[in-house]
């Protein structure tokens, strides 16, 4: 299935020029006990620079695999993934990835964790620390630089993970069910935070989730997946920052849910 996303919903004045993704006819299968298990079949998708794309789908539909392919952690069997026209071959600092479990290194402080993401940069150590401090401010973790991950709550740890992923200034930020492990209230708060961060940074963000409300609250574009393929691509016309009660969201939600039930 072919789908071209119209970048209409992105404001023209602030639209960045990099961070555009083209996914073309991608197949991915895994070998499990010698048997081939197909996860993605002929998936194509184009994402404009600076868009927020939500990918929704039931467990096992291949949405996380798609994200890991973009991240370069897995390799597709067929097809191309192009970032600003350049094929993706392995992980790179132009793409950040946030996992469902925060995956902070427990032996490093919050500051050291974020600093580690800057280890490939030539900046002076002092400059790096300044940047880390401003990132921690951005995600609302002022005063927690010296804390170890086990001293943080789940939501705070995920904020630190967001700071770490943002540190190398990726053009594309990939979020693999980033709020899936959090309680409902923390989730709502972090959704607003993500929206704020996206509006500040304006980098491309692609988020996998199975919470339809979350997808609608954050995404310009919703990619609905059924096992192995993209079922539909929907545009969300509501402006950012978004009101959860925006009346245009309700019919979209009904449509997505019916697609998910059909799949």
């Amino acid at each position: 299935m072919n789908a071209i996303i119209d970048p209409r919903s992105v404001q023209a004045d602030s639209a960045p020029h990099t961070g555009g993704l083209a996914i073309r006819h991608v197949d991915k299968s895994f070998d499990i006990d010698g048997r081939k298990l197909s996860v993605l079949e002929d998936v194509s998708l184009t994402i404009a620079p600076g868009q927020f794309v939500s990918i929704v789908g039931a467990s096992g539909c291949g949405k996380s695999t798609l994200l890991r392919l973009i991240a370069g952690l897995e390799r597709q069997n067929r097809g191309d993934i192009l970032l600003d026209g350049v094929p993706v071959a392995g992980p790179g600092l132009d793409r950040g990835l946030i996992f469902q479990d925060h995956r902070l290194f427990p032996w490093l402080t919050v500051e050291q964790n974020v600093l580690l993401a800057l280890s490939n940069s030539d900046e002076a150590a002092a400059d790096k620390r300044v940047r880390v401090a401003s990132l921690l401010t951005l995600v609302g973790l002022d005063g927690f630089a010296q804390a170890f991950p086990h001293q943080l709550s789940g939501g705070m740890a995920q904020r630190a993970a967001i700071a770490r992923a943002l540190a190398p200034e990726p053009q594309v930020l990939l979020l693999d069910e980033p709020l899936g492990a959090l309680d409902a209230l923390t989730r709502l708060r972090l959704q607003s935070e993500l929206q704020r961060i996206w509006l500040t940074r304006r980098s491309t963000m692609i988020m996998v989730t199975h919470d339809v409300d979350e997808a609608l609250f954050l995404g310009d574009v919703i990619v609905v997946m059924q096992p192995g393929r993209i079922a539909r691509i929907l545009h969300v016309p509501a402006p950012h920052p978004r009101d959860r009660a925006d009346p245009s969201l309700a019919p979209l939600k009904a449509e997505i849910l019916s697609l998910l039930h059909a799949g």
Binding site: A71, G72, L73, G90, P91, G92, L93, R95, G96, L97, F99, D101, R103, F105, W107, L108, L116, A117, S119, N120, R164, P168
Partner: peptide, 27 residues
Amino acid sequence: KKHLEVGRVLMLSRWRTFRFILLPTAL
């Protein structure tokens, strides 16, 4: 594996992978 994956995403060098992931795990 999940820590090593983070190392790959952050493009850590072999030495940094050892210093910041393998060594602390084994410590």
